[in-house]
């Protein structure tokens, strides 16, 4: 029983990270109807930046926040330069460019930092708490990702800029006609998504170790989370991320072993796409007259 609880808690800790990635994917999906295949690698690259800052002697938290800022600016810059010309291009063109970005970041990390696996520090003490139920880092990851998610929801719900981003994502023409600079909102959305990805990367790196390919599996879990929750529903994506985290741990521990985690995730993705394409909590817009 205690083992089960332990698996669930561990699942929630990684689930928070998947939830962040899922939310980042949904944010970009909502405003552009594109799936950002480079989301994971962007987070990985940002984590390397944090690693370098810490390596050069910066304390953890300043490095953390500086990385978030750099990731935000980098994401916004990417949107302005690389993605903007593609706003009206086909899915294929977009996917190819996303995949191009994905391997560019991956190889850039390899070039700059080599492929040697690195340890990434956790800001939290290295010990178990609650009778060994979970590690301090796991609790910390839950708190950090939870805080980020709450802040984001508050931002989207209660600030004019958050409202403008949502309006621009839903109906770009209408948004422009009320004076919202939609293309700036897209850049802002990309910046936010990149920042969230950076935080997810920094939270997961102490667990999986830092290397250029560390995010590819996590991206797939993020996809699965976003799809389970409904690709156009931020709340659902977050819930989906947690569900995937717990499911992954439970299935891994009791059913299929660690060998098939990715395959199981693939099955989940395909099953959701086939049988419940709107996701478990996908919002249907009720009427369109």
């Amino acid at each position: 029983m205690e083992a089960l609880l332990q698996q669930v808690v561990a699942g929630l800790a990684t689930g928070g990270i998947y939830a962040s990635i899922a939310l980042a994917l949904v944010m970009i999906y909502q405003s552009t109807h594109q799936i950002n295949f480079a989301q994971g690698e962007m987070g990985m690259f940002a984590t390397y930046i944090a690693w370098a800052l810490i390596h050069w002697g910066m304390p953890y938290w300043p490095a953390f926040f500086l990385t978030v800022v750099i990731a935000f600016l980098g994401g916004a810059f990417l949107q302005r330069t690389v993605l903007r010309p593609l706003e009206n291009a086909s899915h294929l063109a977009n996917i190819v460019v996303f995949v191009g970005l994905m391997i560019t970041f991956n190889s850039l990390a390899g070039l700059l930092f080599t492929y040697t696996i690195k340890t990434f520090p956790s800001p939290f003490p290295n010990r178990l708490i609650f009778d060994g139920l979970l590690s301090f880092h796991q609790l910390g990851a839950i708190v950090v990702t939870g805080t980020v998610l709450l802040l984001l929801f508050a931002f989207f719900k209660y600030t004019p800029v958050g409202l403008a981003i949502r309006a621009g994502a839903q109906n770009p023409l209408s948004a422009r006609l009320v004076g919202i600079r939609v293309s700036h909102m897209l850049a802002l959305g990309w910046g936010l998504a990149a920042a969230i990805g950076a935080i997810a990367g920094m939270m997961v790196a102490p667990i999986v170790f830092l290397e250029p390919n560390m995010m590819s599996g996590i991206l797939l879990y993020g996809f699965a989370g976003a799809l389970i929750g409904g690709i156009d529903n931020p709340w659902g994506a977050v819930a989906g991320g947690f569900i995937i985290g717990v499911l992954e741990n439970l299935l891994g521990a009791y059913v299929i072993g660690t060998e098939l985690k990715l395959t199981a995730t693939l099955m989940i993705i395909i099953a959701v796409l086939l049988f419940k394409p709107a996701g478990l909590f996908g919002q249907r817009i009720v009427k369109r007259v």
């Binding site: 191009g100 391997i103 560019t104 991956n106 190889s107 390899g110 070039l111 250029p212």
Partner: peptide, 14 residues
């Protein structure tokens, strides 16, 4: 370097 081909791939395709 081992990473260079991929960097070229990525940039070339974009």
């Amino acid at each position: 370097s081992t990473a260079a081909p991929w960097a070229i791939y990525g940039v070339a395709v974009i």
